[in-house]
């Protein structure tokens, strides 16, 4: 029984990894100039240290440029953001034992957005081109928001889940209003702000990947470290405490980790909805609630999902491009509803 289960699990994981690799190749290959998969693989592998001598340069040099400087960074970033948002969503849902929790509900995404929109306006006012200003502001505001929510929810040294959600919803609505206010006063910056808010990976280069990676790595590492504690906390905070989990400490660290990830995602790609909400649900339906398998699966599925959504965003109105946030909502929403209708019996 255990064997057949772990076998099934490794088959599914293999499939998920294959889907991700195929999505990466597709994402690089599809575009105004399409590049065949074998060429993509060779170009990429030739840049892996130690392998460069095994791959003869049998490709057009402009293809290599497109792959390496334009498409690969974008695809990589989409995959990272997909992973980050999905993991953050998993953590929020697990911590709050609430299917509706995601980076948006708790206000972290809006906080990041406020930082980003604010920095766009600031640039226009003080006339300093802050190239990395947007991510930095988005990131700082995400952390500030989660700290604010946590402290608002705190009663006598503890922050009960219900309080956290209520505080999150309240803070979120205030911040959303502030974002709208910024937009109202943004004048000729409105287009830039709007475009940013809709989310996407258009024109993102490796520099964005480098911005993302430190926060992404730290956040993800913390989350994986506490997988077992997350399981225990699904039984209720008191039950977790009875099992020796230092609930408040774990909760604080996980909140910070999820805020790190969300802030980094919003910072590099704007507001992309539905990934953090839908992906954890779908994966939980397949794998069950055990975070030790759930988290890696969520990471893989989130990456593939956002990659494929980005491909769609690029091809639907080619040569134009849709903001990917619209695509994720349009594709993810109905699929999610379909799944919920099918599995009404389970809680998540």
């Amino acid at each position: 029984m255990t064997n057949s289960y772990s076998m099934k699990r490794s088959i599914i994981f293999t499939l998920l990894i294959m889907v991700l690799l195929i999505s990466v190749v597709l994402g690089i290959g599809i575009g105004a100039i399409s590049i065949p998969p074998s060429e993509i693989v060779r170009i990429l592998l030739s840049h892996v240290p130690g392998l460069q001598y095994y791959f003869a340069k049998g490709w057009a040099p402009e293809h290599a440029t497109i792959v390496l400087t334009m498409r690969f960074p974008r695809v990589l970033l989409a995959a990272l953001v997909g992973t980050g948002l999905a993991l953050a969503g998993t953590v929020f849902q697990g911590l709050f034992r609430n299917p509706m929790a995601d980076p948006y509900v708790i206000g972290v995404s809006s906080g990041a957005a406020l930082g980003a929109v604010g920095s766009i306006l600031l640039q226009s006012v003080v006339d300093i081109p802050l190239r990395y200003g947007i991510p930095a502001f988005a990131f700082v505001f995400a952390i500030i928001t989660i700290l604010l929510v946590y402290n608002l929810a705190r009663v006598g040294g503890k922050a009960p889940v219900m309080n956290l959600i209520l505080a999150g919803v309240a803070v979120n609505s205030v911040i959303s209003a502030l974002v709208s206010l910024c937009m109202f006063f943004s004048g000729n910056q409105l287009h830039q702000v709007l475009f940013w808010l809709m989310g996407g990976f258009s024109g993102r280069g490796m520099d964005y990947v480098y911005i993302f990676i430190p926060y992404g790595v730290v956040g993800t590492a913390i989350i994986f470290v506490y997988a077992r504690e997350l399981n225990a906390m699904l039984l209720g905070e008191e039950a977790a405490e009875h099992l020796g989990v230092e609930v408040e400490r774990v909760k604080r660290r996980l909140l910070i980790a999820a805020a790190l990830l969300t802030g980094a995602c919003v910072a590099v790609s704007g507001m992309i909805g539905f990934v953090g909400l839908v992906i954890p649900h779908i994966v939980r339906m397949i794998f069950g609630p055990d975070h030790r398998t759930l988290l890696p699966a969520v990471a893989l599925v989130g990456a593939s999902f956002l990659l494929l959504a980005d491909i769609l965003a690029r091809v639907i109105i080619a040569p134009g491009e849709l903001p990917v946030g619209i695509v994720t909502a349009l594709v993810g929403g109905p699929f999610f509803i379909y799944l919920l209708r099918r599995q009404k019996s389970t809680m998540f």
Partner: peptide
């Protein structure tokens, strides 16, 4: 409080 709301085995 039983808190067994998630489909663990």
């Amino acid at each position: 409080e039983q808190g067994l709301d998630f489909p663990f085995t």
